[in-house]
């Protein structure tokens, strides 16, 4: 699943560590989500989207292949 977390982080000048702390997860999980190797659960996706004040669709791109 494609996502815009890395771009959003850069806009907000945030490190992976800080984002991870804010949404209650680890830096490794954020790295895996950014690289697309791991798909975030719905609660975590909501937390990330809410943190950036965006909707889930603005942060995560869903395609039928996913």
């Amino acid at each position: 699943m494609k996502n815009h977390i890395q771009e959003l982080r850069k806009i907000h000048n945030l490190s992976q560590e800080k984002l991870a702390r804010a949404v209650g997860t680890t830096r490794q999980t954020i790295t895996s989500i950014e690289t697309g190797k791991y798909t975030a659960s719905l609660p975590l996706a909501f937390k990330i989207a809410r943190f950036f004040r965006k909707s889930i669709e603005e942060v995560f791109e869903f395609s039928e292949e996913d």
């Binding site: 991870a20 702390r21 209650g24 997860t25 680890t26 490794q28 999980t29 895996s32 791991y38 975030a40 659960s41 975590l44």
Partner: peptide
């Protein structure tokens, strides 16, 4: 707590 509850780690 964060490390233990981390969803990737749990998966």
């Amino acid at each position: 707590r964060v490390k233990e509850m981390d969803e990737r780690r749990r998966l």
